[in-house]
Design a protein around this nucleic acid. Structure first.
Lengths: 333, 333
DNA sequence: TTGAAAGCGCTACCAG
DNA sequence: CTGGTAGCGCTTTCAA
């Protein structure tokens, strides 16, 4: 697996490396005839420029890093796919790292990206993360950075959806359909995404004069099992909920399973709205009414924001991508 | 974002780079006292070794490339996640590229990986790919390479499931449950994965003395729309199928939708078995009986095979990870 | 124990 | 138009 270098080409053709470099980069200052010879020789011998050499020279790697809480989760896979496509179009490579929703892994991911001299980082913090000192440090060292999907309030650009408003709208929709005891299923309380969505939910209840019951609010770990047990607890309350707002796809799915496992009907006994991708909703039974997020736009906006920063723009921007409610069969008309 | 280098450290401490290098690499030949000074200075000033410099010196990047047909597809996301975890544990970085099931993109991905001087490539070819000359060329240039999930027969190590046997077993199971007109839904005919699964299906029919009907075999593009229209065609035959074997998750899901859209019942009117992940089966309604693949094992085996090659083992190995049938509600008892 | 210098591949600069 | 050379950060070998 030995590669041919410019020096090799120069030696064989009996010319100087600098001439080879100029010819291969399409710069002028090389005779038509010589350029031709160099180019065809390079192609025939499978010459590949070594990007690390140029990197070393200018400390510019044309590489960005992505930190994702879980690529195997559909929602994130779509976003990452989009970021990668956008980055590649703009001549950047992506290094994708998966924190598996663990703080410890997340720090590892960041160290690794820093070691790789990425020129920027697009990150969705893990649900465990409460200590953002590492990120702040990176930011202070002028590492371009953008949050996506989840954005703690620490002065870094971000692309998220309208969390509060969408939860507000979803809650109102449940109320309009006759629900009065609406439960909220979310992630850890310290996550701004969760608290914002919860805020929208509570606001809707207040506006409509529906009493807030703390026993109907479950904010724990985001995982299938956690969603399952929380929902079972909700259903075994003396006054169980007649609707659930699930602030995460996994929680929505586990809630559906918990409900049907108890022999209850959706939406007759319990209605449900979840944050999820359309095809997951489409597949579920009954099809879950959902908050539809434009994942492609989140991805491409995140990359553009990062690109701006890499080009020297150090303003902090918070982009909100609109999400809208899509009613299906898990809510009453 | 200016980083501190060994040379900077040396200059400031008034010593030589080589001493700094030795100290930081933990090599001996440095006095305890000086080593201490260098190390603490490095830590305080956030020194990060530049991996590209070492790369350049030894043309060893500790980086591997992954080509995936579609990360947004659950099945592949799980495999990639596993490969990445395994690679990271072994000190390798991953560059993940997505061909979007297009041959043209796939070639781009490979070129990009080659440019990045990855030390090995783990690839699942796109469904379009019939021309493997690029891969053969890479192989001839001694690039370590492993196929996963789909493996054309061109003398390259691979990790796949027991395609024929699993399809055979699934078909037998449908026959045992009383089906007699079993349709097969697959990807493009030239894909070995499809032809192997089809082979297992046909074999089962022959063994059980069930006539093979070519109009029940649909092998086209793997996509939701293609699965939908193929299934609708099947259902409108004079003698429609009473069971379907779907050789890909997307096709299974689209088939279910097509069937229910026609007001037919599963499994009473049409039974179905698909190749898919357990949670997709779990979510679907009715829960689809499926061929369960051990995606984690596919991922970790693929990395190990690559690692062997990178360590100089040039034997060609074909690993088959067992898949087993899991019966749910889309097949009769 | 420490220093000096070469070299990995490439590009920019300065000379010819 | 072409050649020569320095230098990016790091490791290694040889010399002191």
């Amino acid at each position: 697996m030995k590669r041919i270098s410019q020096r090799d080409i120069a030696k064989i053709l009996g010319i100087n490396v600098s001439t080879v470099s100029r010819a291969l980069r399409g710069q002028d200052g090389v005779s038509q005839e010589l350029r031709q010879r160099i180019e065809s020789f390079a192609i025939e011998n499978g010459y590949r420029p070594n990007p690390f050499a140029a990197s070393l020279r200018y400390d510019t790697t044309r590489t960005i890093g992505i930190v994702v809480p879980d690529v195997a989760f559909n929602h994130y896979a779509h976003i990452v796919k989009r970021i990668e496509a956008e980055a590649r179009q703009n001549g950047y490579m992506c290094i994708i790292t998966d924190s598996d929703e663990s703080f410890e892994n997340e720090v590892n991911c960041l160290e690794l990206l820093e070691n790789m001299h990425v020129e920027g980082i697009i990150i969705c913090p893990s649900q465990e993360t409460t200590d953002f000192s590492y990120l702040k440090q990176l930011k202070q060292a002028h590492m371009p950075m953008v949050f996506y999907d989840r954005a703690p309030d620490i002065g870094i650009s971000s692309v998220i959806i309208n969390d509060a408003a969408s939860a507000h709208q979803a809650t109102c929709s449940l109320i309009d359909a006759g629900a009065r005891r609406i439960a909220f299923l979310g992630g850890p309380n310290q996550m701004k995404q969760t608290s914002d969505r919860k805020h929208g939910y509570l606001q809707a209840l207040r506006e409509r004069g529906i009493p807030i019951r703390t026993e109907l609010v479950k904010c724990h770990h985001i995982s299938f099992n956690s969603g399952l047990s929380d929902t079972l607890e909700l259903l075994s309350l003396p006054e169980p909920p007649d609707a659930i707002l699930a602030a995460h796809g996994l929680l929505a799915i586990s809630a559906v399973q918990a409900i049907t496992s108890q022999g209850l009907r959706i939406p007759e006994d319990v209605a449900i709205i979840g944050y999820m991708t359309d095809w997951v909703s489409e597949m579920s039974h009954p099809r879950i009414s959902f908050v539809k997020m434009n994942l492609r736009e989140i991805g491409s906006k995140a990359f553009r924001l990062l690109q701006d920063q890499m080009n020297g723009d150090d303003s902090i921007q918070h982009v909100v991508v609109g999400a809208r409610l899509e009613l299906r069969d898990s809510t009453k008309k």
